[in-house]
Simulated assay, not measured.
Amino acid sequence: MLHSDRSTHIAKPPFTASEQLATHLQQLSVDLIDLHLVGKQAHWNVVGLNFRDLHLALDEVVDAAREFSDQVAERMRAVYVTPDGRAATVAAQSSLPDLPTGEVNTAQAVDLVAASLYAVAGTARRIHDDVDAEDPTTADILHAIIERLEQLAWMIDSENRVANASLPRPVLR
C-alpha cells in the first residue's frame, strides 16, 4: 500500500548517530573532500624532476580521497547524519594545509601532498576511539582509510627522503 501522506512515515533504525559522531564524521568528510581537491591541484600544476611518476601517483591520491569521501558520506546518511560537502563548508572546516597557487616543483608538491595525507590520517586517528566506542562498524571504515592514506603518504614522502637521515627515522630490527 502506498502512502500519500509522507509526514506519517516512521523508521525505526537500530542505531542513529550522536552529535559527537556526526561532528567527527563531518570533519573527516570535509578533510577527504579537500584531499581530493589538493590532489587535483597538485596534479595539474606539478613540474620538475620525476614529474610523470608523481603526476600518476597523485591520481591514486585523488581516487582514494573520492572513494573514501563517498563512503564516509554514505555511512553518515546510513546513521541519519546529513553530510555537508559544499565548497564553502569544506573551505571553512578543512584541517589540511593550503597549497600555493601556480606551478609547484615536484619536491615541494611531495612535501605538501604528504602533509595533506598525514593530516587526513591524523583526523581519522584523532576521532577513532570516540567513533569506535559509539559505532564499531564506522570505526572499521576508519581503519581502511588510515591504512590506505598512510600507505600513500609513505610512498609519496619517500620521493624526498634521504636514507637513514630523514626524520622520522625508521625503527631498525
Results as ranks from 00 to 15, higher is better:
Met1Gly: 04
Met1Asn: 00
His3Trp: 01
His3Met: 04
Asp5Lys: 03
Arg6Lys: 06
Ser7Gln: 01
Ala11Val: 06
Ala17Lys: 09
Ser18Val: 04
Ala22Glu: 07
Thr23Ile: 03
His24Trp: 04
Leu25Cys: 06
Leu25Arg: 05
Gln26Ala: 08
Gln27Ile: 06
Leu28Met: 11
Ser29Cys: 13
Ser29Asn: 09
Leu32Asn: 08
Ile33Arg: 07
Asp34Ile: 13
Asp34Pro: 10
Asp34Ala: 11
Leu35Gln: 14
Val38Phe: 06
Val38Lys: 05
Gly39Phe: 12
Lys40Tyr: 02
Gln41Glu: 08
Val46Met: 07
Gly48Tyr: 01
Leu49Arg: 09
Leu49Ala: 04
Phe51Gly: 04
Arg52Asp: 07
Arg52Lys: 09
Asp53Glu: 13
Leu54Phe: 03
Leu56Glu: 15
Ala57Gln: 14
Leu58Trp: 08
Glu60Lys: 09
Val61Phe: 08
Asp63Val: 14
Phe68Asn: 08
Ser69Asp: 10
Ser69Pro: 05
Asp70Gly: 10
Asp70Tyr: 10
Glu74Ser: 12
Met76Trp: 03
Met76Leu: 03
Ala78His: 10
Val81Thr: 02
Pro83Thr: 03
Asp84Trp: 01
Gly85Leu: 02
Gly85Arg: 00
Arg86Ile: 00
Ala88Thr: 03
Ala88Trp: 00
Val90Phe: 01
Ala91Arg: 11
Ala91Met: 07
Gln93Thr: 00
Leu96Ser: 10
Asp98Cys: 02
Gly102His: 00
Asn105Gln: 11
Gln108Ile: 00
Ala114Asp: 13
Ala114His: 14
Ala115Lys: 03
Gly122Thr: 12
Ala124Asn: 14
Arg126Gln: 13
Asp129Thr: 10
Asp130Asn: 10
Asp132Lys: 13
Asp132Ser: 14
Glu134Phe: 02
Pro136Trp: 06
Thr138Asp: 04
Thr138Gly: 13
Asp140Cys: 06
His143Cys: 02
Ile146Thr: 13
Ile146His: 12
Glu147Asn: 11
Arg148Lys: 15
Arg148Met: 08
Leu149Ser: 04
Gln151Asp: 15
Leu152Tyr: 15
Met155Gln: 11
Ile156Trp: 02
Glu159Asn: 14
Arg161Met: 12
Val162Leu: 14
Asn164His: 13
Leu167Asn: 07
Pro168Gln: 01
Pro168Gly: 00
Arg169Gly: 14
Pro170Ser: 02
Val171Trp: 08
Leu172Gly: 06
Arg173Thr: 06
